[in-house]
């Protein structure tokens, strides 16, 4: 693991967040009672299979869920002492980018193809700082240098399509950090990157974090990113957090059968593995969740009780809990 910044007081608290979508199949409970907190300078990883609600959780925190079909049904998102869900749209616009920023999954769609990258970074800065144009350009340049865009003065005038995937990703990163937010959410920020470029980018994020005590949330499928970047991990399944702990809790003592299974299904570079464990079946569809524990149909430890009652959250240690009847 990369050495972390010093971890301070709680900056963000999410409490019992529920975000539902109305679809023609019925109500999709994409996020169904998610709670967690985040400290200053801390990196939290959120892992789980495709469709388990990771992105919708983050969109809810940014208040960017499309309404309709979506609706934040309940919950609190307290950032720096303020519940974001109580703010007006205008107030939220001021907070987005300046206090909490999101780097979305696909760098190409988050950049506008008709504007130069310099002007897009400048625009992000202007949105939140009332400063003269001249110094906006200087600041944009500085941010681009910070994310290691070579020859930033000239590359500023480039359009997104003139840059490689790795560079575009860094530009999106530059926009994310340009307003020095307290919390930066990175949704699968490196999936489209090459291994060596990914390593550069992850190191960069860590460096920025150390410098500014940024709190990071990493959304990913990839336990490698978690092992490298995160202090704590939340494992999501079917719209809920099923296990949460420090990165070592999760890797050394996974307690939820789903976490165990996920870890066992990842091949390792350092050793020969005869056969990978594989979880049979697929994650449930969120408009038609089974009663009880949603992992029950795939769980090797399933008991009668699992099929009727949702398991309670059971503490494993001060830093570690999981929701599973096997632990009760």
């Amino acid at each position: 693991m990369v050495e972390s910044a010093t971890i301070g007081e709680i900056v963000l608290e999410v409490e019992d967040l529920r975000t539902y979508f109305r679809t023609r199949f019925g109500t999709v409970k994409a996020v169904d009672g998610v709670s967690f907190n985040l400290r200053k300078g801390e990196t939290l990883g959120i892992v789980g299979e495709s469709g388990c609600g990771k992105s919708v959780t983050m969109l809810s925190m940014m208040r960017l869920v499309p309404i309709p079909p979506g609706r934040i049904v309940s919950g609190k998102i307290v950032l720096d002492g303020e519940d974001l869900l109580q703010l007006s749209e205008g107030e939220m616009t001021n907070i987005r980018g300046s206090k909490i920023a999101l780097i979305i999954q696909d760098p190409m769609t988050s950049l506008n193809p008709v504007f130069s990258i310099g002007s897009q970074v400048a625009e992000a800065i202007k949105l939140h700082h009332d400063i003269p144009h001249r110094s906006v350009v200087d600041q944009a340049l500085e941010v681009l240098r910070k994310v290691n865009i070579p020859a930033a003065e000239t590359r500023m005038r480039d359009y997104p399509h003139q840059m490689s995937g790795g560079m575009r990703q860094r530009v999106v990163g530059a926009i994310g950090i340009s307003c020095e937010p307290m919390v930066l959410i990175a949704d699968e920020p490196t999936t489209s990157l090459d291994v060596t470029i990914q390593a550069q980018y992850l190191k960069l994020l860590k460096d920025i974090q150390k410098e500014s005590d940024l709190s990071l949330i990493f959304i990913t499928h990839d336990f490698g990113i978690v092992a490298k970047m995160c202090d704590r991990v939340a494992v999501m399944y079917a719209g809920r957090i099923v296990e949460m702990g420090s990165v070592r809790d999760i890797f050394n003592h996974p307690s939820h059968p789903y976490t165990e299974a996920l870890l066992a299904s990842v091949p390792k570079m350092e050793q020969d593995v005869e056969r990978l464990y594989s979880i049979e079946g697929q994650p449930p569809t969120l408009h038609d969740l089974p009663e009880g524990c949603p992992f029950a149909p795939r769980c090797p430890h399933v008991m009668d009780r699992c099929r009727t009652e949702y398991p309670p959250q059971i503490d494993q240690s001060e830093t570690h809990y999981a929701s599973c009847w096997r632990l009760a």
Partner: peptide
């Protein structure tokens, strides 16, 4: 060697010799 050191670790305690390449392909 650079590819291997850039690969993500399989455990938080995996020791990696950092060999971060500069520049693009």
């Amino acid at each position: 060697k650079a590819l291997m050191s850039a690969a993500l670790p399989s455990h938080p305690d995996t020791v990696q010799d950092e060999m971060i390449l500069m520049g693009e392909v």
